[in-house]
Design a protein around this nucleic acid. Sequence first.
DNA 1: ATATTATGATCTATATATAAACCAAAGGGA
DNA 2: TCCCTTTGGTTTATATATAGATCATAATAT
Lengths: 112, 112
Amino acid sequence: MPKSIKRTYSQYSKDAVTLLGAFIREARNERNLTAQELADRAGISRGLLQRIEKGNLKCEIGAVFEVATIVGIKLFEADGNALTKQLRHTKEKLALMPKSVRKKYKRVNDDF
Amino acid sequence: MPKSIKRTYSQYSKDAVTLLGAFIREARNERNLTAQELADRAGISRGLLQRIEKGNLKCEIGAVFEVATIVGIKLFEADGNALTKQLRHTKEKLALMPKSVRKKYKRVNDDF
DNA sequence: ATATTATGATCTATATATAAACCAAAGGGA
DNA sequence: TCCCTTTGGTTTATATATAGATCATAATAT
């Protein structure tokens, strides 16, 4: 039972989502799509698209990414995008990753 | 009244969210944080963090970005990140943007 | 091996995001 | 100017994401 769900967000997170929304809107305008048209293509309501473009933090990430993808915004390009490189590295590394995390007990080397 | 909300997502969107989640998990492990610790810092439940790391598309973008920010993943770097550059451009351009979009009426030049 | 801890999964109750239908106002074309 | 479209707000009903608790399993340290 969620007792209220009043989250706090870092300024960075807020800025990031705001910028992403603004970018979506710009891309939509550049492609001459109305809000309704883009919403239809993404399979969401116009109201949700409005909130996405406004940078509302509580929209589902799937809807946001879908809209971004449709208007041509690629978070993870095939090219030299820094994040993409890191993620590619991650993907390859995933199989080798430890499943759980342990606190590091500082090993004290006494027998010196 | 949402009649069911069964969305479809492009493969790209699914992959992007999956990769982001995997990257978050990797970053968390590299920082030796337990799921509970990271969840606490982000102000979310451990269950939600699990879904985020799994790449669940229906998590709120604010929670995802917050977690990513905490473990040091910057979607929009201050440096030469391509998306950042575009977004900076967008920000400056925002004030000049038209508020609404009009369909282009192909002007037919009859009197030729 | 044993104990301890992290993770994965399930279940319940509730807060809330969403779709849909409105309306008003702004914007752009003719 | 007038008309038509787009956008920005509501409001309402409902589907659902979330917090929190619990349990089983996996993983790690000693």
